[in-house]
């Protein structure tokens, strides 16, 4: 646990989202009576803050819990324990327990632009649905407002009456963004927003996300396995491993310092072409993520770590500030 670290992340500024000790354990049923016998610790005591207008990037390998974390914040999954506060108000456990007013503040954009829009509905109805459900607009104002939203995300309002299949992947993702923005949320969760679309569309989406963020001082939680996207868009970055945050801090600082050996390995594995035309070499990380059912008692990264020593197998390193009060690392050996 990271109790001693206090508020993880931004100490100053206007806090929008506060996530405290959030846990999600999924039961693994077994035995004759299908009683739950084990728990998958998908997210295990995660604590962080996000400021208004800030973009937090969540990175980590598949199964590290980043998507589960995002879905708890939106309310798709109820957390096992912990607190999620938005603007100082407890969001409650799940979508059922949230009222409409709270729901509209947190919206999500999904990875898959093909299934995130109902194929049988016109764009007018897809983007207009939140307006109607929340009673923000009625009748012809819906059409006008949807048109404005589409224009804002760079889609011709003449295409109001088109169906999703008439759009390209990038355009569909913009429609999804327009739908998420319809209710003027203060926090947008972006779950792999560009990983199913082409590089050129990706550039357009990234530009759009930055523009929208600046205009409405929105906050994003950006989940992506593509570190180049994350570093480009995020102000701060949180690296997750096996349900825990192992490093969190300012994006540039984390990318430069790479204090946690896992951060180091993750970043060394990403192929990148620099603006100069230079191509970085990649370095694989050996071994596999251990099972989240019975995570190792000490540091969860211990088995794959090149810095490991005896203490790592026994004692779990706390998330603590190194050098900078806002740069936290969970490692026993952070010799810079």
């Amino acid at each position: 646990m990271t109790r001693d670290s206090g508020t993880t992340g931004a100490l100053s500024g206007d806090t929008l989202l506060r996530v405290e000790g959030l846990k999600k354990y999924f039961p693994v049923r077994g035995g004759f009576w299908q009683r739950s016998v084990k728990w998958v610790r998908a997210v295990d005591s995660v604590t962080f803050n996000i400021n208004r207008g800030e973009v937090l990037g969540l990175v980590g390998e598949s199964g590290c819990g980043k998507t589960t974390l995002a879905q708890m914040i939106v309310g798709i999954y109820p957390p096992t324990s912990g607190r999620i506060e938005l603007d100082g108000i407890d969001l409650g456990k799940s979508l059922q327990s949230r009222n409409l007013k709270t729901k509209r503040k947190v919206q999500i954009v999904f990875q898959d632009p093909f299934w995130s829009l109902n194929p049988r509905k016109m764009v007018r109805d897809i983007v207009g649905e939140p307006l109607v459900v929340h009673g923000v607009a009625l009748g012809s104002t819906v059409v006008r407002k949807v048109g404005d939203l589409l224009e804002m995300v760079g889609i011709d309002r003449a295409r109001l009456f088109s169906y999703p299949h008439e759009f390209s992947g990038g355009e569909r993702q913009r429609v999804a963004i327009a739908r998420a923005l319809a209710l003027n949320p203060s926090l947008l969760l972006l779950d792999e927003p560009t990983s199913s679309i082409d590089t050129l569309s990706q550039a357009e989406i990234l530009n759009l996300l930055i523009e929208v963020r600046n205009r409405f001082s929105l906050s994003y939680v950006l989940i992506s396995h593509d570190l180049s996207v994350v570093q480009y868009l995020s102000d701060r970055i949180a690296v997750m491993y096996l349900g825990k945050i192992v490093e969190i801090g300012d994006t540039r600082r984390v990318f430069r310092a790479r204090l946690h050996p896992y951060t180091e390995a993750l970043m060394a594995a990403v192929p990148m072409i620099h603006a100069s035309g230079e191509v970085s070499d990649v370095k694989p990380l050996e071994g596999h993520v251990p099972s989240a059912i019975n995570p190792p008692p000490g540091c969860r990264f211990e088995a794959r770590c090149y810095k490991r020593q005896d203490v790592c197998a026994v004692e779990e390193p706390p998330l603590r500030a190194i050098e900078d009060p806002e740069h936290l690392v969970a490692c026993h050996f952070t010799n810079v």
Binding site: R104, I108, D112, S116, V133
Partner: peptide, 26 residues
């Protein structure tokens, strides 16, 4: 399980509307 259903839930669409306006036609 499709994302457009999750999206509708996040928006606050009622279960009945999700069932008969989003899921049924598909």
């Amino acid at each position: 399980e499709r994302p457009y259903v999750s999206a509708a839930r996040c928006i606050g669409t009622s279960d009945w509307k999700i069932m008969f306006s989003h899921i049924l036609p598909n």
